[in-house]
């Protein structure tokens, strides 16, 4: 078996383990290296499985369509009077941070359209105010009270949104004139606002 035949034989016997292949490989460093590199590619390929995370918007869109098509149906869940009151009005507590996040995003958008170099300044001024108005723990406790199974999902998404905000904020701080960083910060706050909005939708009677 020569080098060409060895390579052709890898179509059927990819690991180079047949008797003829082994005989050639033991005497040919080039082909031996080739087989080793292909093995390495095959081994690394498995790591690509399930390695990417879709954005939160994907589930949001799916849920919207499911509701529009009537595939999601309201579940009858009897609650005690106090809990019922909380379920009915608890969502109102999320209105403020959700609205703040939406307003901040809108403000950023409008501002960006007019004066790009002041954009980051506005973001950095407004963002701490939004952060101060939000209590993530209260939010998660409310989720846990109403849908314990969803708490880990919201916790995870909230953590990601906060990390995104921190990263984007850091980029804006580094270069206040970086429009891309400012856009990322706006996206980050929109993601957080979306989380509150989804939670609020679930709480409505």
């Amino acid at each position: 078996m020569n080098c060409i035949e060895l390579e052709e034989s890898l179509v059927e016997s990819e690991d180079g383990s047949s008797r003829e292949q082994r005989a050639h490989l033991s005497a040919c460093p080039a082909c031996s290296g080739l087989v080793e590199e292909l093995r390495s590619i095959i081994a690394t390929a498995v790591e690509l499985r399930g390695s990417a995370e879709p954005s939160p918007q994907v589930w949001n869109s799916i849920e919207m369509v499911l509701r529009q098509e009537g595939l999601i149906r309201p579940q009858p869940t009897p609650r005690p009077a106090l809990s019922s009151f909380s379920a009915r009005w608890g969502w109102a507590r999320w209105l403020a941070p959700a609205a703040a996040a939406v307003l901040l995003s809108a403000g950023i958008l409008l501002y960006r359209a007019s004066v790009a170099d002041k954009l980051a300044q506005q973001v950095s001024v407004a963002a701490p105010a939004l952060d101060a108005g939000m209590d993530d723990n209260d939010f998660l406790q409310e989720i846990a009270a109403q849908s314990p199974q969803l708490r880990p999902v919201y916790e995870d998404n909230l953590r990601r949104a906060n990390e995104y905000i921190r990263d984007a904020q850091s980029a804006v701080n580094e270069d206040p004139n970086d429009a891309e960083a400012a856009r990322s910060l706006m996206d980050a706050y929109q993601q957080k606002a979306m989380l509150f909005n989804i939670a609020m939708d679930r709480s409505l009677p």
């Binding site: 849920e63 595939l71 999601i72 579940q75 199974q149 969803l150 679930r202």
Partner: peptide, 11 residues
Amino acid sequence: QGDAEAFQVLY
């Protein structure tokens, strides 16, 4: 049965 949480868990 149309349970929203179940859809999300599967997702």
